[in-house]
Computed example of a mutant assay.
Amino acid sequence: MEYGCYVCNKIIKTGEKFTFTKEGPVHMDCFVAAERKKVPEGKAEYLRNLSMILDYELTMLVSLLSLKSEDKETSELIRRRINAIEKQAGETTGLIYNL
């Protein structure tokens, strides 16, 4: 599936870090830059920390998505980990979006 970033209007390529907000799919860097412009100065450090957390989560997600296994048990473990990290990244995205 192909997505377009609602901030820069470019296609999000396979392997790029991106997330979803109420407005749609967005590159992680575009999202953070846009939010940085809107966030009150007193929340700048919190945004910086949340951005690093989201970066770590999305880096792990991209890595896990590249893992393939013929073993059913391993494939299931990878799938569960992907789902868990997607949920965490979604929560982090929501925290940033609602700053």
Rank of each mutant, 00 (worst) to 15 (best):
S69V: 13
M28D: 04
G42T: 15
K17I: 07
A33L: 06
C8Q: 01
L64V: 04
E41G: 14
T59N: 11
L65A: 03
P40F: 08
L67K: 06
A34W: 00
C30I: 02
E23Y: 05
L58Y: 00
G4W: 03
K38F: 10
Y3L: 10
M52N: 14
E23Q: 07
G42R: 07
K10L: 11
E45S: 14
N49K: 15
V32D: 00
S63M: 15
L64S: 05
S63V: 14
A44Y: 13
T59S: 12
V62F: 07
K22Q: 08
M52T: 10
K43V: 13
F18V: 01
Y46F: 08
E23C: 06
S51E: 11
Y3R: 07
V7Q: 06
E16G: 04
E45A: 15
T14Q: 13
A44M: 14
L58W: 03
A44G: 05
G4Y: 08
K22E: 09
P40Y: 06
L67P: 04
K13M: 11
E16Y: 03
Y46P: 10
V7L: 01
F31M: 00
M52I: 15
K37Q: 15
G15D: 03
I11L: 12
L64Y: 11
K37P: 03
K13F: 12
S51L: 12
L67F: 14
L64G: 02
N9K: 09
D55L: 15
P25F: 07
K10D: 13
L65P: 00
R36E: 10
N49L: 12
C30V: 01
F18T: 00
N9S: 09
S63Q: 11
G24C: 06
Y3A: 06
Y6F: 14
F20A: 09
L61Q: 07
P25Y: 09
V62H: 04
A34S: 11
C30W: 06
S66R: 12
K37D: 12
R36F: 06
R48C: 08
K68C: 08
G24E: 05
Y46I: 14
L61N: 01
K37I: 12
I12V: 07
